[in-house]
């Protein structure tokens, strides 16, 4: 259920669009931002608010790369794997992150702090490899720089209490 406060904020957002449907993506993004991911309950809330079938909104939620229907970690790492970053070693960065956080691409660390997902070219190709963590862009990545960004410079692995894979 949306609270009256949530409803008021969504009303403001909706006023910028010529139709209710056109506001769908912004409503879903807003719910995700405030609730972490798009749970079934959030999808029902959005459908109720917009007066659209849940299935139609699910068609949107499952379409966009940055809408998450599954729970994600506190900080989502979006690592670019497009051509310029790949050529400049982004797979090495991916391997490093996977090892340090004990997860695989698409997974979340056991302590729930991080999720690693691939992202399409971030438009930052002259400083490859690049990634976004939260809302922040980082580039010219090295394993040392990644540790610093993720707060792992003390040598401990995040999620060290037991990863969900070998």
């Amino acid at each position: 259920m949306l609270t009256p406060e949530e409803r008021a904020e969504l009303d403001e957002m909706r006023s910028h669009y010529p139709t209710v449907r056109a506001a769908s993506v912004s409503v879903l993004k807003w719910l995700q931002k405030h609730r972490g991911h798009l749970s079934d309950e959030s999808m029902r809330d959005a459908a109720d608010y917009l007066g659209l079938p849940v299935a139609e909104l699910d068609g949107l939620a499952t379409f966009y790369n940055l809408l998450f229907r599954q729970p994600v970690g506190e900080r989502v790492i979006c690592l670019c794997d497009s051509i310029s970053c790949w050529m400049c070693g982004s797979d090495r960065i991916r391997e490093h992150i996977e090892n340090r956080l004990r997860l695989r691409m698409g997974g979340t660390s056991a302590d729930g702090r991080f999720t690693l997902v691939p992202v399409v070219c971030l438009g930052n190709c002259d400083r490859a490899p690049s990634m976004i963590v939260g809302d922040e862009l980082y580039d010219d990545l090295t394993p040392e720089k990644v540790d610093e960004i993720l707060g792992l410079s003390d040598g401990t692995n995040a999620g060290a209490h037991g990863g969900d894979h070998d």
Partner: peptide, 11 residues
């Protein structure tokens, strides 16, 4: 919606 790999001019 600049997402063409290798392109960063609109940014």
């Amino acid at each position: 919606d600049e997402m063409e790999p290798g392109t960063f001019k609109d940014r």
